[in-house]
Amino acid sequence: MALIRLETLTKRYGPVTALEDLTLELEPGIIGLVGSNGAGKSTLIRILLGLLAPTTGRAFVMDLDVTRQGTAVRALVGYMPEHDALPPDLPATELVTHMAELSGLPRSAARERTADVLRHVGLYEERYRPIGGYSTGMRQRVMLAQALVHDPRLLLLDEPTNGLDPAGREDMLALIRRTGTEFGIAILLASHLLGEIERVCDFLVAIESGRLVRAAPLATFTGRTGVVHVELDDDAAVLGARLSGAGLALRVDGRSLFVQLGDGAGFDTIRDTATDLGAGLVRIEPERRTLEDLFRDEVVPGGVP
């Protein structure tokens, strides 16, 4: 059963096209939805919730049609909007309990789950105070708690680190990661920050101007490049010359060498040569591609289906 299935999904707002002809099938996991602001991430999430109707095409969440079975979909999904959506006059515990009931939990179960979930996100005594007095970090936690309280199969998180400071961002990302890996809740995390996606997700969907750029496991984006970065504590020219002599393709850059390795065998050559020369090795490290390359490359082969 596919977690999310999109069939030629298109959404237009008058002359503006927010999503164009998206066809995609995603399996459960932690999925990053990346794209710049206005790329269509929020529109896609709102369509998956049945909050927006697609112009053409269809969308399914766990094989339920989001336009026809919206209520059933929303019972299985937790949603954290990108904007603050909390009433200032209610304590977190009351809001979250109420939200649990609106997802179909009986009152006593709603209370119990609220206590569990607020503890899970790290809210303790504050939970009994009105939300109006909370910090941004606490508010984001309440938003995550209300999305989790009914134990959904899928969490839709729209820019969950909005407005958080670096420490709060780290906490939130770790919390999301843990929620996904340990509790088996599938997550679709929308963000314009590649670093966040890289930290948390295993699978990545990139959209740009409403079109699918690429959908693939994260490893294929950031996988090894076959280049090894060798750093010395002194100029690397001599070692570079010796390694070239040994038949390795490389580039010298000050104290660093970038060696192209066909297979693992080259590591030994580098180590032994460096030992012979008595060179001070700082590190030998495989170079990784970063997600930024994805957008730098402009056209990614095999992206659009």
Binding site: L49, L51, G70, T71, A72, R74, A75, V77, Y79, P81, H83, D84, A85, L86, P87, P88, M99, L102, S103, G104, Q146
Partner: peptide
């Protein structure tokens, strides 16, 4: 005013 509707409308109701 506080956009809480987004939370209500994403629950199991119409």
């Amino acid at each position: 005013r506080h956009r809480v509707l987004a939370l209500f409308f994403s629950r199991a109701i119409r």
